[in-house]
Design a protein around this nucleic acid. Structure first.
Lengths: 133, 133
DNA sequence: TTCGTTGCAAACATTTTGCAGTTTC
DNA sequence: GAAACTGCAAAATGTTTGCAACGAA
């Protein structure tokens, strides 16, 4: 049988925290951010709720950067840039996510395709060596 | 000063192991695969050499699937499919990797772009529920 | 002989989990 | 009051690292 979902103040706060930023935060960022206003929050709860939201489809996981999972409250398909210097994950809204490709892959390879990720790698403005001088 | 690179039988075996497959193996797969022929191989050595090859540009990292890093001896830009069921990583050679996009992102956003990953997600033939019955 | 490479095991970092207490409905 | 949710700490997992021994040049 389906599980009954109950309201929880912490859960709400965790979702709000993720929605408050476009930096694609880590679990620990959420924890550190909420700690001052929710002193009795535990990291386990953050992880449990992030996984809960992921299962619900409320948030998406952008991938693992420098060993840490990155989350995104924007569930619309869009493109990302990952800075290999500082690990920043940046939205590239001007680069379209071609959903037509999904059907193409599905048809051509006989796979069930749920979606795709387009992730650029490189160095962001802050980390660019040319900027220092 | 630059470090002198010395020959090592284990290192060679590790590279051969990765090159012998297109399954984009994990460090542990390499370890398990070589263990029978190299009983005194240690997992630390596998990790050290995978990182060595990555720094040299000899191999690439495809990403983290189910918590484990996946490696690829094919350094040419190409597209991947990740099965969310079994974690298989499959090459999609027929879906072109558009390197023109890199320049586009670089110009439009002022970022230094090294390349990009196009990764489809879904369920592979083996894991497709329709296949069972 | 030098110093890169390795095995081993300990250390590390992130994430998950078991349990007892708390909260929601 | 039942069961979902939480804090806490321990456990699990994948990866890195320190050190002494080994091996290539």
């Amino acid at each position: 049988m389906e599980r009954t979902i109950r309201y929880s103040k912490k859960r709400e706060a965790i979702l709000e925290a993720i929605r408050s930023t476009d930096t694609h935060p880590t679990a620990d960022w959420v924890y550190q951010t909420l700690k001052p206003t929710h002193p009795d929050l535990s990291l386990g709860t953050v992880y449990r709720n992030l996984n809960f939201f992921r299962e619900q489809g409320t948030i998406r996981c952008v991938g693992v950067v420098k060993g840490q999972e990155r989350f995104d409250a924007n569930t619309h398909p869009h493109t990302h840039f990952v800075c290999d210097g500082c690990g920043a994950v940046i939205d590239l809204h001007e680069i379209p996510a071609d959903t037509e490709l999904d059907r193409q892959v599905q048809d051509r390879y006989g796979l069930k395709v749920d979606g795709h990720e387009l992730i650029f790698h490189g160095v962001c403005k802050k980390c660019k060596p040319e900027t220092l001088h």
